[in-house]
Design a protein around this nucleic acid. Structure first.
Lengths: 356, 356
DNA sequence: CTGAAAGCGCTTACAG
DNA sequence: CTGAAAGCGCTTACAG
């Protein structure tokens, strides 16, 4: 039972002495081409809007099939995560700023949480995001099946982060992890390291694949042979054992993937009595939220998170303006190399490690 | 031009050989009271739903169902501030969680930014928040005139943080800064301090007023006279001078308001060669985002930020359910005393300070 | 230039 | 028990 406290378009129309259609036209500035409404009428309409405090109901606008200047923000996990707060926040800052620029409000889909705590775009079969004109998606753990379904319908969205599907292209703003990883690895080569190992997580995502290809690229640019044993993805084997073997084989530097992983690495080095960075140089692939011991500052790269968020919104705004829901835009932004002191030149006189 | 790829209710109705109304009733389980649909019909409808992969369009549902289940989140500054990120974030976490519970989506009003960079509830006379069923407001620097206007219209909202208006009551979820400050101050008395001074900001807000009254309350509970000179609000006089005077007069402990301010205090102590906490105990009024030197851990209290956010949303949900836009709810949540080591017993043998 | 009408996809009284 | 109809608040051809 809606109490009609909120003024509706019909009220505005009455007050202004025109029809709802005219109100709609004036409000939405659809005064192009063959539609011409005299300034005086427009003024009356606007005055009525003013007087009543009228704001169009976005739900009705949406149903009627036009734009409601609402941009969705969808994450498969909580949008305000507690665990990776520091990582995600800058994306949101960027999203907000760009939305402000483009005059969009943001709708956060929190009601899409399924029974299992995970969020779903499709509830049963309906695309919940349709409440908004378009949406920005972000976060890990995306459900590829849902994404696949989303690209198949004419609904504009942009993913923050590169995401690929088997048989479809989708819009995204990515960070150039490949180039950044290549740069970091080359930095190690330039310092004089010959054998640079790679420590990664056991899973594979687009952004991890990019890092790994950047690592390989650095090797091929230097025309160095890459010993497959120097790539180790977290698995059955013990990290300490791998580390011991690497050192014996002459590995003097490691590039490592994510922060939780990096913490384990640093701890293991400590346990094995390996001095950082004197015995072993460490480079980190992306923003690190980890306090390193011994005044170590991570050599790494910075992900342009705020820009990625802002760019995603701007792309979406373009897609909407262009009105072609099938259009695909992909933008890759550079990362910034962050020099630290966790990478130094290798020892001229390497210690003789005992295997563990 | 919406393409009808998605099955609509009418399609289900056709397939099941019933009317849309029946489909709606079955799907929404509105089979109470005088509505009775034979199991066989229900089965047919459900089978059709299944076969077509039908799910109701939420947009149409909201439009038909009177409410749009959108809750606004409004701040007069950016909702994702860069400066006070750590302070505001937990409120948002609480808001999101409660919204999820209550099945509301959230709309962040970023489009309300005026030319001057500040956000406004009213744009040209229109309440922009009306887009949502109700709204949660938070943040400092609220515009009292806009708030005044908002309470005057029948629009349900809840402020996160106590806010008062001259001639109206509004709904909020507050933290009990008064009790918490009283507790912290009494803690100092219990440690043996006789003269506890108060250092505050120059402005006055509801939450600062609460702290100040808590401080006074602690004195009156102990039946101690409060020397007016021991309350100092940031102003013309130099902090160092005030501090020097206090110490000479036997002040051995200070409670201090906000973090930026607290930083100045700590620095000044350092400059004057005052050892913390041996020479001077320091208590902090609320969550402190400041690294204290010398392994000092702040004695302070924790603001129940997440709970405040969640409670605000739940209150709002209640107000909406109750349908009385004029109803006012005010909830005050307790803060948690945080024992640190920045408060210790006063020296039995106080140093003889030289005035600066 | 502007109004009347149809339609977006659903729900809810109201009849039968 | 179930259908026909009206309505939610808007937009968009289509007439005039």
């Amino acid at each position: 039972m809606r109490t009609h406290k909120r003024p509706r378009m019909i009220d505005v129309a009455h007050l202004a002495g025109v029809s709802p259609a005219t109100v709609s036209l004036v409000i939405n500035n659809r005064l192009s081409g063959n539609v011409r409404i005299p300034p005086e009428t427009q003024r009356r309409v606007l005055a009525a809007v003013q007087e009543l405090g009228y704001v169009a109901d976005p739900v009705a606008q949406s149903l009627a099939g036009t734009r409601n200047r609402l941009l969705g923000v969808f994450t498969f996990e909580a949008i305000f995560p507690v665990q990776f707060r520091d990582f995600y926040y800058p994306f949101l800052v960027g999203v907000e700023r760009a939305a402000e620029e483009c005059n969009f409000d943001l709708v956060l889909f929190t009601s899409t949480t399924a029974g299992d705590g995970k969020r779903r775009i499709y509830r049963g079969g309906a695309n919940r995001l349709r409440l908004a004109d378009g949406a920005v998606l972000l976060g890990a753990d995306e459900d590829k099946l849902e994404l696949q379904r989303l690209v198949e319908e004419p609904y504009p969205f942009v993913f923050i982060g590169r995401r690929e599907l088997p048989n479809a292209r989708l819009s995204y703003t990515a960070a150039d992890y490949s180039a950044a990883t290549c740069e970091v690895t080359e930095h190690l080569f330039a310092l004089g390291h010959q054998h640079v190992a790679y420590l990664g997580a056991s899973n594979i995502t687009e952004s991890l694949a990019d890092r790994r290809s950047g690592y390989r690229q650095a090797y091929s640019r230097r025309e160095l042979a890459l010993n497959p044993a120097w790539i180790w993805l977290q698995g059955a084997t013990d990290l300490a054992a791998v580390l011991g073997a690497w050192l014996k084989q002459g590995v003097t530097a490691i590039v490592t993937e994510n922060a939780p992983f990096a913490a384990t690495l640093v701890q293991t080095c400590h346990d094995l009595g390996i001095f950082l960075p004197a015995d072993l140089s460490l480079a980190f692939l992306g923003d690190l939220f980890l306090d390193l011991p011994w005044d170590l500052k991570a050599t790494s790269f910075a992900i342009p998170r705020q820009e990625m968020g802002a760019t995603a919104v701007r792309l979406l705004a373009e897609l909407l303006a262009q009105g072609d829901a099938a259009a695909v835009r992909q933008v890759t932004l550079p990362c910034r190399f962050v020099p630290g002191n966790s990478c130094v030149a290798p020892r001229s006189d390497p210690p003789n490690y005992i295997s563990t």
